[in-house]
């Protein structure tokens, strides 16, 4: 399995090299929009030193962590997901059914998106600097990393569930942007939202928890919510796997 993944990564790199200009531009735009978020954050905190107990550095930690999760998802899975939608809609999965590999993981990991690696490394570097100023304890630092991994899993599962819906409904491609919108809106301190919204997105669809929990570990405010986000992410992954199996059966019968 690891060897196959190595080949897939090599192929992604080769494809990236075919579209060098696109790669550079995509990376630049990633940086550009991150910079806009930084400037906007700077504007907010020019009027007040803290918002719900978050100072500017805590806030930077939050949005950078949220970006880190989303770029990691993009680097690892987004190209595979984009390809998968096309494959499902074009009815081109027959060969996947015939190969002695797990088709769920094969398609999820089919491509990595190298342009996002540039922005991922950049946000990773910045987050490193921020964490070095926040001084989390070793345990909190470790749990920060765990929370980021859970976050990547959560974003992956949400997108996988959305993408696999293409087996049943066509013309839904516009909906594929929803998880991204959700995560963008969640890259803020949970407390700024009204109580109902907070409860909904901390507990039911815990997207706010996904971004807020690692940030809290970063500035030494550990929270048990991590257990909940890990549990929900696990459940979502299982759901997406079952959905995939069902989708293949549906694909076969519509052949």
């Amino acid at each position: 399995m690891l060897k196959i993944y190595r080949v897939l990564v090599t192929q992604s790199l080769a494809e990236t090299m075919t579209y060098r200009v696109t790669t550079v531009l995509t990376a630049l735009f990633g940086v550009l929009f991150y910079a806009i978020e930084l400037i906007t954050g700077g504007v907010y905190f020019s009027f007040t030193p803290t918002i719900y107990g978050w100072n500017f550095l805590d806030y930077l930690n939050l949005i950078t962590t949220a970006n880190l999760i989303s770029y990691a998802y993009q680097f690892l899975f987004v190209a595979g997901h984009e390809d998968l939608v096309d494959q499902i809609l074009d009815g081109n999965l027959d060969y996947s059914l015939l190969r002695p590999v797990n088709s769920y993981w094969f398609h999820a990991c089919y491509r990595v998106d190298f342009p996002s690696l540039v922005t991922l490394l950049l946000t990773g570097g910045i987050e490193g600097v921020i964490l070095s100023k926040l001084h989390p304890t070793p345990l909190n630092l470790f749990l920060y990393l765990v929370a980021v991994l859970v976050g990547i899993g959560f974003v992956f599962a949400l997108n996988q569930i959305m993408v696999t819906l293409a087996f049943w409904v066509d013309g839904l491609s516009a909906l594929n942007g929803l998880p991204e919108d959700l995560m963008d809106a969640s890259a803020r301190p949970a407390k700024i939202y009204p109580r109902v919204i907070q409860q909904l997105f901390l507990w039911v669809i815990p997207s706010l928890a996904i971004t807020n929990v690692p940030a809290q570990f970063g500035h030494n405010q550990p929270t048990w919510l991590l257990l909940w986000t890990a549990l929900v992410t696990g459940v979502l992954l299982v759901i997406s796997y079952i959905e995939w199996q069902r989708g293949l059966l549906k694909y076969v019968s519509a052949n």
């Binding site: 907010y44 009027f47 007040t48 918002i51 719900y52 803020r188 301190p189 407390k191 700024i192 939202y193 009204p194």
Partner: peptide
């Protein structure tokens, strides 16, 4: 919501 928090 972010701006309202800033005002607040």
């Amino acid at each position: 919501f972010m701006w309202l928090a800033v005002y607040n």
